[in-house]
């Protein structure tokens, strides 16, 4: 840990992208489960995710990064799904 003499005044963080090291997944009480057969790859989940928990590879949703998912449920709410069936469902953590 840094000493006070090593800190930047004003608590300014001078390193870009350092929030990648701040893992927030342990806050979760509900977790999103991806149901690929209902997914139309609209990427609304990626767009709405307030963190960086939706893993997109080659332009496609491939699942969740649970190191960053806080379980807020925004992705599940916004997911249009297919024929009335959601591609993201929230389940209690530990189920």
């Amino acid at each position: 840990m840094k000493k006070w003499t090593e800190l930047e005044p004003g608590a300014v963080v001078l390193e870009a992208g350092s929030s990648a090291r701040f893992k927030t997944g342990s806050w979760r009480t509900f977790k999103p489960r991806w149901v690929p057969e209902n997914c139309i790859q609209c990427l609304m989940c990626w767009l709405y995710c307030p963190d960086m928990a939706v893993k997109v590879v080659d332009g496609k949703m491939t699942g969740f990064d649970y190191d960053y998912c806080k379980g807020c449920g925004v992705c599940a709410r916004e997911c249009p799904g297919k024929q009335g069936k959601k591609a993201i469902v929230m389940e209690p953590e530990g189920k």
Binding site: P9, V12, L14
Partner: peptide, 29 residues
């Protein structure tokens, strides 16, 4: 000093600092 509009050097103001470093930042202040 540390201007946000210097976009060549991205930075953050106002981070969350808890029990690990808050005391040190106040000592600096």
């Amino acid at each position: 000093k540390n201007p946000l509009l210097d976009i060549e050097h991205p930075k953050s103001f106002g981070p969350l600092i808890l029990t690990d470093l808050y005391h040190e930042y106040k000592r600096l202040q």
